[in-house]
Deep mutational scan, measured.
Amino acid sequence: MAAAAAAGAGPEMVRGQVFDVGPRYTNLSYIGEGAYGMVCSAYDNVNKVRVAIKKISPFEHQTYCQRTLREIKILLRFRHENIIGINDIIRAPTIEQMKDVYIVQDLMETDLYKLLKTQHLSNDHICYFLYQILRGLKYIHSANVLHRDLKPSNLLLNTTCDLKICDFGLARVADPDHDHTGFLTEYVATRWYRAPEIMLNSKGYTKSIDIWSVGCILAEMLSNRPIFPGKHYLDQLNHILGILGSPSQEDLNCIINLKARNYLLSLPHKNKVPWNRLFPNADSKALDLLDKMLTFNPHKRIEVEQALAHPYLEQYYDPSDEPIAEAPFKFDMELDDLPKEKLKELIFEETARFQPGYRS
């Protein structure tokens, strides 16, 4: 834990890192770190609560700039109880001085990944967590956004079992017609939660990839272990087919990539493993919904509104309290091709509203 900075004593240090967030945020305490930044909790002297502050230093890398800009653009436009918001952003007053960006968010005690390492969940908890994931996802999908990296560590939890989806750095506007060349190379989302079509096709992607990830998360809540822990690309596919069985001819016809289709045709026939054999203690309604989410063919996979209306979630289902976005989200430009200098300018502009004396 960093010592509390005395008023006016300059930035606090946390594990050798400068955290320049005073005077409003003090009493910093280390939480963890990701690929390009550290997260601390801090005391907000204005709202009198502890908050989470993520320090991001992305400006050396085009990919990190892209992810940072995506996350900020999306989260500043989203407003939903099951999606983490941005409360404040701290950065230098000029673009030349801006080396880091500090993002202030609600402090959540833990995440689903940490929880599943230590606790076996009751059916009631599984049901409530799944409902909140789908409630947040309904809003995301209504904005025409794909999260693309749903996994237990991106689901934040607090002691009252509130759940918030975080990390929109890989999110995209849904565009089933656009052929994202190089899709697989830039697709760094965790393999275990990846839909089979991501490994088999490169053309376009749809909201059904997020539903697949939610199915993987439900299976993990039922058993405290990942359902498809593939060691590499082909191993991942083999794990999936080992449980779902061989795809039907109709399902194979959806695979545009001939090499991928021929690979699947070359494999020995596998039978589907019954879900109640894998999860003998699970609620039968939970397994019915799991089956509809972990469907090989993305066109037959359940959609988020149908999933919310499934009998497993009937005690929570309330369409009048499951809000959607006001308007579909649009990125003005494809960020993939922009140089990091341009992305830095866009991050600077996007964060201006939090600067003292800002006038829109």
Rank of each mutant, 00 (worst) to 15 (best):
residue 165 I to R: 01
residue 94 T to N: 14
residue 334 E to Y: 09
residue 182 G to L: 12
residue 251 D to R: 09
residue 2 A to H: 10
residue 139 Y to S: 12
residue 92 A to Q: 00
residue 252 L to W: 04
residue 237 L to G: 10
residue 84 I to W: 05
residue 12 E to D: 15
residue 228 F to I: 15
residue 343 L to Q: 15
residue 145 V to N: 02
residue 234 L to C: 02
residue 126 I to E: 11
residue 209 I to H: 10
residue 251 D to E: 13
residue 201 N to H: 08
residue 74 I to M: 02
residue 203 K to P: 06
residue 232 H to Q: 11
residue 216 C to T: 05
residue 162 D to R: 03
residue 249 Q to V: 07
residue 232 H to S: 05
residue 55 K to E: 14
residue 85 G to D: 14
residue 341 E to G: 06
residue 48 K to F: 14
residue 227 I to H: 02
residue 138 K to E: 09
residue 59 F to H: 13
residue 146 L to C: 03
residue 30 Y to R: 06
residue 244 L to Y: 01
residue 248 S to V: 08
residue 88 D to E: 14
residue 298 P to H: 15
residue 49 V to S: 11
residue 191 R to S: 10
residue 56 I to C: 07
residue 197 E to H: 01
residue 222 L to R: 10
residue 106 D to V: 13
residue 12 E to H: 10
residue 215 G to Q: 07
residue 250 E to A: 06
residue 140 I to C: 09
residue 65 C to W: 15
residue 161 C to D: 04
residue 166 C to T: 10
residue 135 R to W: 01
residue 19 F to A: 14
residue 57 S to D: 00
residue 18 V to C: 08
residue 154 N to I: 15
residue 65 C to R: 13
residue 257 N to D: 08
residue 245 G to R: 06
residue 89 I to Q: 00
residue 335 L to V: 03
residue 255 I to C: 11
residue 108 M to S: 03
residue 279 F to G: 01
residue 142 S to E: 09
residue 136 G to L: 05
residue 155 L to N: 01
residue 319 P to L: 09
residue 196 P to V: 11
residue 147 H to A: 08
residue 297 N to F: 11
residue 237 L to Q: 14
residue 180 H to W: 06
residue 177 D to T: 04
residue 341 E to K: 12
residue 105 Q to T: 09
residue 338 L to T: 08
residue 253 N to V: 07
residue 290 L to E: 06
residue 270 K to Y: 06
residue 294 L to C: 14
residue 117 K to S: 05
residue 123 N to I: 14
residue 102 Y to T: 04
residue 45 N to T: 13
residue 239 H to I: 10
residue 225 R to A: 10
residue 12 E to V: 13
residue 222 L to C: 06
residue 32 G to Q: 00
residue 218 L to Q: 14
residue 4 A to S: 12
residue 127 C to F: 14
residue 330 K to R: 05
residue 92 A to C: 04
residue 55 K to R: 14
residue 218 L to D: 05
residue 283 D to C: 07
residue 157 L to S: 04
residue 279 F to C: 06
residue 316 Y to M: 05
residue 229 P to H: 14
residue 245 G to L: 10
residue 81 E to M: 04
residue 134 L to C: 02
residue 338 L to F: 00
residue 154 N to H: 09
residue 280 P to N: 06
residue 64 Y to A: 15
residue 330 K to F: 06
residue 322 E to V: 13
residue 313 L to E: 01
residue 274 P to F: 00
residue 140 I to A: 06
residue 275 W to A: 03
residue 320 S to K: 07
residue 282 A to I: 03
residue 188 V to F: 13
residue 79 R to I: 14
residue 200 L to T: 04
residue 90 I to H: 01
residue 161 C to W: 00
residue 121 L to C: 10
residue 329 F to C: 04
residue 190 T to R: 05
residue 296 F to K: 02
residue 82 N to C: 05
residue 44 D to C: 13
residue 263 Y to H: 00
residue 70 R to G: 03
residue 337 D to T: 06
residue 350 E to S: 02
residue 352 A to P: 00
residue 330 K to V: 05
residue 262 N to K: 15
residue 133 I to M: 08
residue 96 E to G: 00
residue 57 S to Q: 02
residue 345 E to G: 00
residue 285 K to V: 07
residue 204 G to T: 04
residue 22 G to K: 08
residue 114 K to N: 15
residue 350 E to T: 00
residue 125 H to W: 02
residue 245 G to W: 01
residue 4 A to D: 11
residue 268 P to R: 06
residue 109 E to T: 04
residue 137 L to P: 10
residue 194 R to C: 12
residue 90 I to K: 12
residue 78 F to W: 05
residue 282 A to M: 05
residue 184 L to R: 04
residue 250 E to Q: 03
residue 244 L to W: 06
residue 317 Y to A: 08
residue 249 Q to P: 09
residue 94 T to C: 06
residue 143 A to G: 09
residue 182 G to R: 14
residue 155 L to Y: 08
residue 305 E to V: 14
residue 124 D to A: 14
residue 36 Y to N: 15
residue 143 A to T: 07
residue 186 E to W: 01
residue 289 L to E: 04
residue 42 A to V: 09
residue 241 L to F: 10
residue 303 E to S: 07
residue 222 L to N: 11
residue 323 P to N: 04
residue 229 P to E: 04
residue 214 V to Y: 06
residue 86 I to H: 04
residue 350 E to C: 01
residue 97 Q to F: 12
residue 192 W to E: 08
residue 312 Y to A: 10
residue 96 E to V: 13
residue 32 G to P: 15
residue 91 R to N: 04
residue 206 T to S: 15
residue 164 K to F: 00
residue 93 P to T: 14
residue 46 V to S: 10
residue 195 A to E: 09
residue 334 E to F: 01
residue 353 R to T: 05
residue 113 Y to W: 02
residue 240 I to A: 05
residue 191 R to Q: 14
residue 181 T to L: 12
residue 242 G to L: 05
residue 289 L to K: 01
residue 288 D to F: 05
